[in-house]
Design a protein around this nucleic acid. Sequence first.
DNA 1: TCAAATGATTTATA
DNA 2: TATAAATCATTTGA
Length: 434
Amino acid sequence: MDEQPRLMHSHGVGMAGHPGLAQHMQDGTAGTDGDGRKQDIGDILQQIMTITDQSLDEAQARKHALNCHRMKPALFNVLCEIKEKTVLSIRGAQEEEPPDPQLMRLDNMLLAEGVAGPEKGGGSAAAAAAAAATGGVGADNSAEHSDYRAKLSQIRQIYHTELEKYEQACNEFTTHVMNLLREQSRTRPISPKEIERMVSIIHRKFSSIQMQLKQSTCEAVMILRSRFLDARRKRRNFNKQATEILNEYFYSHLSNPYPSEEAKEELAKKCGITVSQVTRINAVSNWFGNKRIRYKKNIGKFQEEANMYAARTAVNATNVSAHGSQANSPSTPNSAGSAGSFNMSNSGDLFMSVQSLNGDSYQGGQVGANIQSQVDTLRHVISQTGGYSDSLAASQMYSPQGINTNGGWQDAPTPSSVTSPTEGPGSVHSDTSN
DNA sequence: TCAAATGATTTATA
DNA sequence: TATAAATCATTTGA
């Protein structure tokens, strides 16, 4: 407890630069009688009280006079005593504060968004993540990305400029206050701890201002990001080729249009869906989900489409047949000329679809003679392979569209592969095996 | 401008 | 957890 007065006195170093005062403290001539002393102290206090009302030069002169006053040490001691009595209240307010969780959140967010911390591509990762999160399809997002990056880097720049300004202002103000306190410590007892405390108060004030800056920066980033996301959220239709690929798979697996994860992945690749794996699988899942439900709801409407794809696949089957055992052919061009189309010509589903062309349940329009010929060709292909008649018979157990009377597909969703390169025409892979 | 098409999201269900 | 079904929100084409 007795450390405080010692500190205060020791803080008298500030007086070292004033030999006049030191002289006064040593000569012992100060205050010979009580009344005189009181008057002197009153005089000094009066001077202190009025010092702020004076002009700078006048105040300096007065300050100097005050510092040199013979009663100065006595007054200093009195102030020390008074202060010692109030020191508890000061100590109480001196405990360390834990880091503000809100500030930490803001810092983390700014760091994550690439605004704070080292610049790493101006938050392109965040932009990419944002794009991935929304499940964009295909390319042509680079323009939006660069726009996002440019705006983010603008925010970043403003943030850093402002932050620097605040820090500079904080430092300047702290230095100023410290100088002021040191200066004042000549006339009143100010411990280094108090200066420290004052500095921390200033820092706290400035950090609250910084927090406001961080908060508005975060808001700006959020607005930018939401705008970017909104832009990405705009639905984009798959291109024609992608739709054809998906439709081809769908109609050639009509009895069980539930692609496995691998199949979805491969379909996504073939469709050119270039976002993150999870997202592109979701996109394919969405497509199949929508397709299944919409097909089921209005089979008649989709019949024509089903026929078209069936016919198309039949042509492929014919081509495969014509080229001998070329099931492993890298590309099986179809009528649409889509490279890398699926070689499903031999699936039971296809046959089923084709069957529907002749079946009584056909709800669509008339089947053209060319399609009929394809059916015949396909039958020929199948008969050539041998050993398919069983599965053929099995497939005829299905209703033409593969939907059972309960309104669901006959088969439980069993994963089926996208490509079946190793399958010969007689394969009973996937759907027909059901 | 509007209806249809369509990808995504949400909710319920097994 | 995957899927069905309903719904939303956007795109497309007449």
